[in-house]
């Protein structure tokens, strides 16, 4: 049945922009988790707001200028969230920290909805509007661009981590906060830096995704959830794992509609992803057994 195969291929091709964006989101989540042991539920919102900023400024500064401003805003947002919310809740319970990031998520969504409304808009695209035909599907140049930018960003951040002094400090602080302090590294500062980078990545992902899909305060903010699943698949601490996870998640979302009537139902991909997430969590859940909590 060639048309089934063709559908499959088309659906794979259509996941390209998603994979790129999820890679960037998952990387940001991994950065933040390693630096401050927080699952940043506001990450999607930290992508959405800069995307809207770029959209709003595009007419004044042009696409590239607006994107640069938005990226800066994204980095700044990361630092602000870390200092204002996360750092202050560090001594509180994990519940409070999570609720804190959820609060940020809600605040950013509400602000964006107030400012730009809840009608989907087309985000700023850095790439010319050129489309390829792949079978029946249309693929935009920007979609491929998103993936390429994501991979470049991943490479740049991995290099930064591996080869610079700052990267060394960040890895030390992530590996062992106390030992890092004993070396003279200020882990608070490296944590802020990690949030800054994660904010930059989120902004980049948000702008890319806003260009290839649509900008919507709520939908875009929740695009972080597939990225969560990606990061979970990769084990939350591994950069390479996050990239692999993003591919798995992207393919899951893209391929489910190819599987018969059930797959074509509205929301079936999300259902499949949720199932995948629960399976991954249950498997990884062993790490949080009661015996661990009893302490050594």
């Amino acid at each position: 049945m060639p048309h089934v195969l063709r559908d499959l291929l088309i659906n794979v091709v259509l996941t390209v922009p998603l994979v790129g964006a999820y890679t960037m989101f998952a990387l940001g989540l991994v950065f933040i988790y390693r630096a401050s042991k927080v699952l940043n539920l506001a990450h999607g919102a930290m992508a959405m707001l800069p995307a809207y900023i770029a959209y709003a400024l595009a007419s004044t500064f042009g696409a590239i200028g607006a994107t640069l401003v938005a990226l800066l805003a994204g980095g700044l947002l990361g630092v602000v969230v870390e200092i204002v919310v996360v750092r202050r809740l560090r001594s509180a319970s994990a519940t409070s920290q999570t609720v804190g990031t959820v609060g940020v998520l809600g605040l950013l969504i509400a602000l964006a909805a107030r400012q730009w409304g809840t009608t989907p808009v087309q985000g700023v695209s850095l790439f010319p509007r050129h489309t390829f035909r792949v079978g029946n599907a249309l693929l935009q140049l920007g979609d491929i661009g998103t993936l390429v930018v994501a991979l470049i960003a991943a490479a740049v951040f991995i290099a930064l981590f591996r080869f610079t002094d700052l990267g060394l400090a960040m890895r030390c602080a992530a590996d062992n906060r106390r030992a890092a302090r004993l070396m003279g590294i200020d882990p608070d500062r490296t944590t802020s830096m990690a949030w800054c980078f994660a904010g930059l990545l989120a902004a980049l992902g948000g702008i890319m995704l806003g260009a290839s899909t649509n900008l919507h305060p709520y939908t875009l903010s929740l695009q972080v959830l597939p990225a969560f699943v990606a990061a979970l698949i990769g084990g939350l601490e591994s950069i390479g794992g996050a990239v692999v996870g993003a591919v798995v998640v992207g393919l899951t979302l893209g391929l489910v509609p190819s599987f018969g009537q059930i797959g074509k139902q509205v929301g079936a991909p999300q259902l499949a992803l949720a199932a995948l997430a629960f399976v991954v969590m249950s498997l990884r859940g062993n790490r949080f057994s009661v015996a661990d909590m009893a302490g050594a």
């Binding site: 400090a169 890895r171 030390c172 590996d175 106390r178 890092a180 070396m183």
Partner: peptide
Amino acid sequence: ELFFGLSVEENLRAG
């Protein structure tokens, strides 16, 4: 309390 995920050389750089 070494940086167990880092190499020996990187541990010394951290030091």
